[in-house]
């Protein structure tokens, strides 16, 4: 059986089935929805950071752009929700195109510039002068499309596509070439790889994923403010979850979200007073002892982790 098929059958299918069944047996649907959203975002970070090495500290910019793309379509054009989600994805891709010059930067400089860019988009959207279009800082209310159940299943579809995309990257010459670019751009060009094109494709793909997630998030919550959908927490969480599990793998970001976001909520329910302490210690431990993520526990022993 080819590896890609194995990955589809034993990673993607069980993941989607579990999250499709869970709402029937577990009552906290918002929590399940958040899990799915973070699974999508962590894989989006995986695409851009794991496969190309760009750390997107302002990743939430695409998420917020997607949410507002959705909101504007629904408020002004009464677009059906599913179509508006697609527009959210397109808006994020356009923002990604606008930001492609950032790819000239590397390392911390890229991370900082990307963070600044996401703040710029936040303040652009939240500008009271744009109240007629975005409702500025006063937030949007989209009661007409409110349908958490459909939004949840839409999120599952996007999750399936995203994980499918990562499975493709993990099993194709294209994904290998992206990793080659991450390792050494000059050598990659000498292997015949168009370095700039590869980086832009990965960048736009990760923007699309976040934009679709943002659109679905807007659909699900239906009432939100710029500060909610442009909250830096989304970037930080998605990055920490992806890194905790281990990037440039299919399973790493999934494991990262399930464990860390699971612990996050467990502490939140049981001992909220220790929340930041425990969570902070966990992340410090990760950085100190497992900089390459949980999967490195296996890869160090020579086991292959998909």
């Amino acid at each position: 059986m080819p590896n890609a098929l194995k990955h589809l059958l034993f990673i993607l299918v069980p993941l989607i089935v579990v999250f499709a069944v869970l709402p029937g047996v577990y009552q906290n649907h918002l929590l399940l929805f958040n899990f799915v959203i973070f699974l999508i975002l962590a894989q989006g970070v995986n695409i851009i950071y794991g496969f190309t090495g760009y750390l997107p500290f302002g990743y939430v910019g695409f998420f917020g752009a997607g949410a507002y793309g959705f909101a504007i379509m629904v408020m002004h054009l009464q677009t059906p929700a599913a179509l508006a989600v697609l527009v959210g994805g397109v808006v994020a891709v356009l923002l990604g195109l606008l930001l492609t010059p950032l790819l000239r930067l590397s390392g911390a400089y890229f991370a900082i510039a990307n963070l600044a860019a996401s703040l710029a988009v936040l303040h652009f959207v939240a500008n009271p002068a744009l109240e007629g279009i975005t409702k500025g800082p006063y937030g949007v209310s989209l009661t007409g499309t409110f349908n958490p159940e459909n939004a949840y299943y839409a999120a599952l579809v996007v999750l399936a596509l995203t994980v499918g995309g990562v499975i493709y990257l993990k099993n194709s010459a294209f994904g290998l070439a992206l990793q080659a670019v991450r390792e050494d751009a000059v050598s990659a060009s000498m292997a015949g790889v168009d370095v700039i094109k590869m980086r832009v494709i990965a960048w736009l793909a990760s923007a699309l994923v976040a934009g679709l997630a943002g659109g679905i998030y807007a659909w699900y919550v239906s009432v939100f403010y710029p500060d909610n959908v442009f909250s830096g927490d989304f970037s930080i969480f998605a990055i920490v979850f992806a890194l905790f599990g281990g990037v440039a793998t299919i399973t790493g970001p999934i494991v990262g979200v399930l464990i860390l976001y699971g612990i996050y909520n467990l502490i939140g329910f049981t001992t909220p007073q220790y929340f930041q302490l425990i969570y902070g210690l966990l992340i410090m431990g990760l950085v100190l002892f497992l900089p390459a993520g949980l999967v490195s526990l296996a890869t160090r022993r020579g086991w292959h982790v998909p």
Binding site: A177, Q179, A180, E183, D184, S187
Partner: peptide, 12 residues
């Protein structure tokens, strides 16, 4: 490409 195997290096 340091983190890729020798074979993967050539595959690219």
């Amino acid at each position: 490409f340091l983190s890729l195997t020798v074979r993967e290096n050539i595959q690219v």
